[in-house]
Simulated assay, not measured.
Amino acid sequence: MERKIALITGATSGIGKACALILAKNGYHIIATGRRAERLDELKKEVPSGIEVLPLVFDVRDKEAVFGLIENLPENWKNIEILVNNAGNAHGLDPIQSGSLDDWDAMMDINVKGLLYVSKAVIPGMCERNSGTIINIGSIAGKEVYPNGNVYCGSKHAVDAITKGMRMDLNPFGIKVIGIHPGLVETEFSVVRFKGDENRAEKVYQGFEPLVAQDIAEIVEFCINRPSHVVLADIVVLPTAQASSTLVNKKL
């Protein structure tokens, strides 16, 4: 039986970790990438028996690390069938006139350039095999713009556009390209956005039931198990209480 391989970026927590675990349950050996080695080591202990996890510790912003590690994978890890581009962050929630250049660089480097680097390293193998699935985790912020979202929304609009362009360019090779765009998901996202202010982050999810990482992972699972002629190209998923980026029915 052919060995099935999936690569997930940002697999140390949240959506990435949930995707890694659910793909492992579907028989995929996991290449898990992230910046926290100890989290990747913990992931090894949580996958089903018989499933291997290859941890790759790097920041997707580091072009040399991305290409160096992915292009030099051990032979039995090279045939990546599924790529989940999950790594991404929001930094700050400031109006454009007072936004931090460091925050802007981080969001564009991680959310856009990091996705491109990893994809560029993986896609040639998929093209050679004329098969593969790429799942880009975007955001409702890639479909709408909201006040103080400026650069973050711009980065996620770029993910949406890149996903559509990938689908066109890779169509001759039979590669499925899927965009999943969640609304409010309770993960470490808001803690990062508010730079460690856990009280402020908790308030984002108060008064309603947000999505959780498992919800997104189950959508990924559904997508990868469709017949070969079916691709769920573009998916927006919101908690029931959320109608748009800024409209959330909170019962406070």
Rank of each mutant, 00 (worst) to 15 (best):
residue 79 N to S: 14
residue 67 F to S: 06
residue 140 I to N: 03
residue 211 L to F: 09
residue 155 S to N: 10
residue 62 D to V: 02
residue 30 I to P: 04
residue 148 N to W: 07
residue 192 V to C: 02
residue 136 N to E: 07
residue 56 L to H: 01
residue 238 L to K: 13
residue 134 I to S: 03
residue 220 V to I: 15
residue 238 L to E: 00
residue 131 S to M: 11
residue 57 V to W: 03
residue 164 K to C: 01
residue 18 A to F: 06
residue 36 R to G: 14
residue 77 W to L: 01
residue 125 G to E: 13
residue 184 L to P: 00
residue 248 V to K: 07
residue 87 A to I: 10
residue 231 V to Y: 06
residue 132 G to F: 05
residue 20 A to L: 04
residue 167 R to V: 03
residue 196 G to Y: 06
residue 212 V to R: 07
residue 101 L to Y: 10
residue 29 H to P: 01
residue 183 G to L: 01
residue 246 T to W: 04
residue 143 K to H: 15
residue 71 E to W: 00
residue 15 I to R: 12
residue 164 K to V: 04
residue 122 V to R: 00
residue 56 L to D: 00
residue 214 Q to V: 04
residue 77 W to E: 01
residue 188 E to R: 12
residue 99 G to K: 03
residue 247 L to I: 13
residue 91 H to Q: 14
residue 135 I to A: 11
residue 51 I to C: 03
residue 1 M to H: 07
residue 147 P to A: 09
residue 52 E to Y: 12
residue 201 A to H: 06
residue 30 I to N: 06
residue 240 T to G: 02
residue 216 I to Q: 06
residue 200 R to N: 12
residue 87 A to V: 07
residue 45 K to T: 15
residue 23 L to F: 08
residue 209 E to P: 00
residue 174 G to T: 15
residue 96 I to K: 00
residue 150 N to F: 13
residue 9 T to R: 09
residue 9 T to K: 09
residue 201 A to L: 05
residue 213 A to Y: 03
residue 204 V to T: 14
residue 67 F to A: 05
residue 31 I to T: 02
residue 151 V to S: 04
residue 18 A to W: 04
residue 173 F to E: 02
residue 197 D to W: 11
residue 150 N to P: 00
residue 72 N to P: 02
residue 57 V to K: 04
residue 3 R to M: 09
residue 186 E to I: 00
residue 9 T to I: 10
residue 234 D to K: 09
residue 152 Y to P: 08
residue 19 C to K: 00
residue 188 E to V: 01
residue 120 K to E: 12
residue 13 S to M: 10
residue 114 G to M: 06
residue 49 S to R: 12
residue 174 G to Q: 11
residue 95 P to W: 11
residue 84 V to M: 10
residue 115 L to Y: 03
residue 178 I to Q: 07
residue 136 N to C: 09
residue 145 V to P: 00
residue 215 D to T: 13
residue 201 A to C: 06
residue 72 N to V: 05
residue 93 L to T: 02
residue 56 L to K: 01
residue 84 V to A: 12
residue 88 G to V: 12
